[in-house]
Amino acid sequence: MSELAVDREIDRSQMSVSDEVAIEITNMNKWYGAFHVLRDINLTVYRGERIVICGPSGSGKSTLIRCINRLEEHQEGTIIVDGTELSSDLKNIDKIRREVGMVFQHFNLFPHLTIMENCTLAPIWVRKTPRKEAEEVAMHFLEKVKIPEQADKYPGQLSGGQQQRVAIARSLCMKPRIMLFDEPTSALDPEMIKEVLDTMIELAEEGMTMLVVTHEMGFARQVANRVIFMDQGQIVEQNEPEEFFSNPKSDRTRLFLSQILGH
């Protein structure tokens, strides 16, 4: 596991955490059938925060962030995103999904559409942006993730790292205020991990609110302002990265860190 994500100084001038609440999760519980997968989750995310969520496989990390944009439904407790409460009301769900972008482990690009079409589809159909404007915005973000020249290709013609950067650009085209990442680099070869992390760091430097499930501890150290450790569907420990890594409080955390950092 790489200790450092990037070898450059990170520009922290805009990485400020405001006291405005972006996501508020209170007493949230979720079951898959009889299996209690998330247990009494309480989490407040402030605007501008960069939170890394880690934990052993099956601890419920994916389920937690997928509840935030209602890819999974929770059964108890409340989730409030940007002031809108997630309920079965479709209007609220649509509203929240417009504000929250998501990047998946397996990219999930649409293989039958070009890169450009992937990026403009949701703005055109969901935000009702005129096509021309949507294409300009898409080009802007494709330049940002450094693959404008691939705009007319299909996802199947790109490398894994390029595909994941397109997936990030596709989310950004919806101008989300919050970005969720579910293990964005774990399906990638080592040499491609860095290019994706670079993109994510740039996003952090611009002040995006980010929730990142990842095992890239270097990224957590450098970019996160808070690290959350989950086990068995519960939040076991959270702290600032410095403190979290050098002085873990719980035994579970220590065990997990020793395994993942390979001592």
């Binding site: 999904r97 998501m102 999930n108 649409f110 159909w125 969901v126």
Partner: peptide
């Protein structure tokens, strides 16, 4: 079709019918 296609369409805020028409059915 992999589940991820449905999830990506949902996460982008497409409605059921939009997702069917633009993403799912063409594939």
């Amino acid at each position: 079709l992999p589940r991820g296609q449905y999830e990506a369409a949902d996460a982008l805020g497409l409605t059921y019918w939009q997702a069917q028409r633009l993403i799912i059915m063409p594939q």
